[in-house]
Amino acid sequence: MRRELHAEWTKLRTSQGAGWLLLALVALTVAASAAAVATVSCPPEGCGHDAPRLSLAGVQLGQAVVAVMAVLMISGEYGTGMIRTTLTAMPRRMTVLAAKAAILTGLTLAAGTVAVLGCVLTGRLILPGNGFVPAHGQALVSLADGPTLRAACGSVLYLALVALLSLGVATAVRDSATAIGVVFGLLYAFSVLPFMVADPDWQTLLWRISPMNAGLAVQVTTNVSGLPLSPWAGLGVLAAWAGFALLGGGLLLRRRDA
């Protein structure tokens, strides 16, 4: 495993795009959060907004960068034919995939932490100017608050799970454009579906199994009992998706011709 990890790290370290993508992850996430918190205001009579969740809204855009990074990690190799060299040098294919997953998770957790801290800071700085002050019934966004800390940590984990889901999908479908399409379809298109059906039972069911809606439940800090799933259970749904995708991708990688 060490050899595989080292190989994957070297490949990633020496490729041009990875650094830029990590930078884009942090920049886009924080920028989108800043845009979201700048548009929302809280009048003196109070508002029903969930300030920590608003501050972390940029994760919805940041996950796109994470998905691109994860997909390119494997389908980039299919694109250039590098995958044949990789698999010749390291014939234990599952281990190769595990090494890729480990490197990817580590990088996403690191960059995701920076991005999420940036989001929390953005919320802390901008929201009070828009009326999110204790006098209007809104506490300042602070990591010392339990639910906020859970939302922030959960968001970092969410990004890592999105990375693993994307890696699994990309391993299964190989082509980068198709993989991105599938991942974005699963995340974004699926997330709107519960809002498009009229039946409440279907709505709840679709919400529970959609990776983005369920996964982002971890960001909710107010009215948690009103959610169809508890925050951690929601993240569990995404983890299940990521697990299935990785498993499916791994099995296909092992059985198929490269």
Binding site: A64, A67, V68, V71, L72, S75, D175, S176, A177, T178, A179, I180, G181, F184
Partner: peptide
């Protein structure tokens, strides 16, 4: 000219 970037 790159599929992933264009789709994203």
């Amino acid at each position: 000219r790159r599929g992933a970037a264009a789709v994203a």
